[in-house]
Design a protein around this nucleic acid. Structure first.
Length: 422
RNA sequence: GGAGAAAUGGCAGAGCGGUCGAAUGCACUGGUCUUGAAAACCAGCGUACCGCAAGGUACCGGGGGUUCGAAUCCCUCUUUCUCCGCCA
């Protein structure tokens, strides 16, 4: 959520930056600011009345204590309705604040200056490419055919058990999956991230904290019986560790990583892109999260990018990095880099990681603060990135590493799989 | 799921309906003392909103109520602990 004082003072800059997102929020912003004026004057008035009532109450107490009951009773009669008007003001203040926060929730994060303006992913800037597409002297099969051919994944049985988008990994397929998880976690720990295993269901407050609610309500599986949501990413529970916390500045940067399954309804995204592992309702992911001093978040983002690059390099995958344009930028992000691996048989780029700096946007919702050098509480910055999302990595490994008679396992994974070929 | 007890500042732990934003201890920060450190002593030490400021307001798990006045009384929800039941 945008910080209100910042909005007050930088409304022109914000409108300008929103243009990168193809967003015209002028009327929302003006509404928020006019509500803010109302809010402040209403509170001032209410505070004055409460102060008056407090003063009277104190006086009455003193009168009774000094035995002056007659005057006390008299004053008490006078005080009777005093709080009523304050209560009325309190009610209208509550309404104003509610309305204001609802509008504030509608404002996405402010894109950083270097974020390119643009409508959709075609306006993203490819800033880095590594590797070359695999070259085959045989027919290249898409991963779902390879998975079937070698008995790695049983999509049909997944459909029987649950439905489409819930694959059943088995045998070497399951083992390879587990190998990737362990590899990613080990690499993250080497990079200084502390591993956590968070809950896989979260409450509403956590969803609001990281920005999934109320914005992306329909994307999460909702357990209505208990008002809980299945996590769409480990970002939600891990970042929410620090909701309503004032952390010590010395603890920066806070670095956490965690493996979790991720659940996404993917409502409205049916079509040919959903074949095989390309788009699932349940998938595995290792996430890295950082909480930093505002001055350090840029550097932290660089570090996370380097980390993800290292993973893809070690796996020997052909990949590229895109700086997302404003129109493709997530709601809560100020800047995002997407990592895409080339899937050699499908001949297309698959997004496998998204690394973002949220600056104070999430922190403001989370009330995640620290004490700065001047001893004042200040919002921290939050960042996260996939390191990595498994299914598309698996798809790329299967497709890129296929030979006429099997699939070669990347060397770094062999200690984890226990086999070097499928 | 049933019965009971509890929830107060970073932690521990007081708190009679008015003088309580809240005793006290520990921790922490600054100072005095010391060659240095420790000890001792002095001072400071929650969060948010409004205000240029002085100051004001709110918050003692959440919400509501009684009252001129609530940390203190009542209702409700949540959480924790103990006991019973069920169960991986």
């Amino acid at each position: 959520m945008i910080q209100l004082p910042f909005l007050r003072e930088n409304k022109e800059l914000i409108k300008e930056r929103y243009a990168k997102r193809q967003l015209d929020a002028a009327s929302t912003i003006d509404q928020i600011l006019s509500l803010d004026d109302q809010r402040r004057s209403t509170q001032q008035e209410m505070d004055d009345q409460l102060a008056e009532a407090n003063k009277m109450a104190k006086k009455i107490g003193d009168l009774f204590k000094s035995g002056n009951a007659a005057e006390g009773n008299q004053l008490r009669e006078k005080s009777k309705g005093l709080k009523d008007s304050a209560n009325a003001l309190k009610e209208s203040l509550r309404k104003i604040e509610e309305e204001q926060i609802e509008l504030l929730y509608q404002l996405p994060n402010i894109p950083q200056d270097k974020v390119p303006a643009g409508k959709s992913d075609t306006d993203n800037e490819i800033i880095y490419t590594e590797g070359i597409p695999a070259n085959f002297d045989h027919e290249a099969l898409p991963h779902w055919e390879l998975a079937n051919k070698y008995g790695l994944i049983d999509f049909e049985t997944g459909v029987k058990i649950t439905g489409a988008g819930f694959p059943l990994y088995q045998g070497k397929g399951a083992r390879l999956q587990r190998a990737l998880i362990n590899f990613f976690l080990d690499e993250a720990e080497k990079a200084g991230y502390q591993e956590v295993i968070p809950p896989h269901l979260v409450n509403e407050a956590s969803g609001i904290g990281t920005g999934q609610l109320p914005d992306k309500e329909g994307q999460m599986y909702h357990v209505t019986e208990d008002e809980l949501y299945l996590i769409p990413t480990a970002e939600v529970p891990i970042t929410n560790i620090y909701r309503d916390e004032i952390v010590k500045a010395e603890s920066f940067p806070i670095k956490k990583c965690g493996y979790t399954p991720c659940f996404r309804r993917e409502a409205g995204s049916y079509g040919k892109d959903v074949r095989g592992l390309n788009r699932l309702h349940q998938f595995d992911k290792v996430e890295i999260v950082q909480i930093t001093h505002p001055k350090e978040s840029g550097k932290a983002l660089e570090g996370m990018i380097e980390h993800v690059k290292g993973l893809l390099q070690k796996l020997g995958l052909h990949y590229r990095i895109a700086l997302l344009c404003g129109g493709d930028l997530g709601f809560a992000a100020a800047i995002t880099y997407d990592f895409e691996v080339f899937s050699a048989a499908q001949e297309k780029w698959l997004e496998v990681s998204s690394v973002s700096n949220f600056e104070t946007y999430q922190a403001n919702r989370l009330k995640l603060r620290f004490k700065n050098e001047a001893g004042k509480t200040e919002l921290a910055h939050t960042l996260n990135g996939s390191a990595l999302a498994l299914p598309r990595i698996l798809a790329a490994i299967l497709e890129n590493n296929q030979t006429a008679d099997g699939i070669t396992i990347p060397e770094v994974l062999v200690p984890y799989t226990g086999f070097d070929k499928i």
